[in-house]
Simulated scan of single mutants.
Amino acid sequence: MLARSLETIRQRDGTRVSVAVLEPRDGRRALYGSQVHITASLVKVDILAALLLRAQHERRTLTQWEASTAASMIQSSDNDSANALWRRIGGGQGLADANRTLGLTATQAGPDPQWGLTRTTAADQLALLSAVFDDHSPLNPASRDLIQTFMGRIDADQDWGVSAAGSRWQLKNGWLLRPHSQLWAINSMGRVKAHGSTFYLVILSHGSRSMSHGIWAVEQAAQSAVHVLRSTPPPVSPIIR
């Protein structure tokens, strides 16, 4: 059912999507697509997780500058802030080190300093969401609370993507026009509440002819993923494609 609806998106718009969705209460999950995608600004959550892991290792909280820079990076998706924190974590090597701790096995950091060209899969980003929101995580409660707070205060003009699947959300989006093809990579991930349940949801996409078309495709995929998972009895965990 999900595969059919996502194929319809590709036929209509040319956008190719990968989806990962989890209902953490009972463990139901679905995965569609194993291809690698460019993260664009989606990696900013990963950068912040790496910064927090480093601070935990040093047995300290974030400095005032780190916290305010992280807030700008997540809430406003500010690239200068991401540049500064990318350097702070040690660039691509620092991200790779953190990802080993976080359990991300298929994510490759972008070439320094191009953090937006980090490559990942929907399954890996679902693992990152689990680290951000689950109690059993390398991130301590204070670190998780900080990321969750920032993801719940996204600037109003960036309230799109997985938020289309629920009434309450915490999210981060990413978008990038690929210069060689003039096509867009549009991504969204987060925690949404819908139909009395909570879902962790990742939508990665590439090949959209405009940003608006890509957002439409991501939101259609998000709504379809939640609908399909609600119709799947636990503990079935389908690998849809």
Rank of each mutant, 00 (worst) to 15 (best):
M1F: 12
T8E: 14
R10T: 13
R12C: 08
D13Q: 11
R16F: 07
R16Q: 11
R16V: 12
V17W: 02
S18F: 10
S18K: 08
V21M: 01
V21H: 06
E23G: 04
E23V: 09
E23Q: 14
P24D: 07
R28H: 02
R29P: 01
L31I: 14
Y32I: 05
G33H: 02
S34K: 13
T39I: 05
T39E: 05
T39P: 00
V43A: 07
K44W: 03
K44P: 00
V45D: 03
A49C: 09
L52A: 03
L52P: 00
A55D: 05
R59W: 10
T61F: 10
L62C: 07
L62E: 07
T63I: 06
T63K: 01
W65P: 00
T69G: 04
A71T: 13
A71S: 14
S72R: 15
M73G: 01
I74T: 00
Q75H: 08
S76E: 12
D80V: 13
S81G: 09
A82N: 04
W86C: 00
R87D: 13
R88T: 12
G91R: 09
G92T: 08
Q93M: 14
L95N: 01
A98Y: 02
L102C: 05
T105E: 13
Q108A: 14
A109E: 07
G110E: 06
D112A: 10
Q114P: 01
G116A: 15
G116Y: 15
A122T: 04
A123F: 12
Q125R: 10
L126N: 04
L128W: 05
A131D: 01
S137C: 09
S137E: 06
R144E: 07
D145L: 15
I147D: 02
Q148R: 15
F150S: 04
F150K: 06
M151N: 05
I154Q: 06
A156L: 09
A156S: 11
A156D: 09
Q158L: 09
W160Y: 14
V162L: 00
A164S: 13
A164H: 08
A164G: 04
A165T: 05
S167N: 13
W169R: 11
L171Y: 02
L171Q: 10
K172P: 00
K172I: 10
N173R: 05
N173E: 02
L176P: 00
Q182I: 01
L183W: 09
A185M: 11
A185Q: 12
N187G: 05
N187C: 06
A194P: 00
F199H: 05
F199E: 01
Y200L: 15
L201K: 01
I203S: 01
G207Y: 07
S208N: 04
R209N: 13
R209Q: 14
S210R: 04
S212M: 12
H213A: 13
H213P: 03
W216G: 10
W216V: 12
A221L: 04
A222I: 06
V226R: 04
L229K: 06
L229F: 10
V236E: 15
P238N: 09
I240A: 10
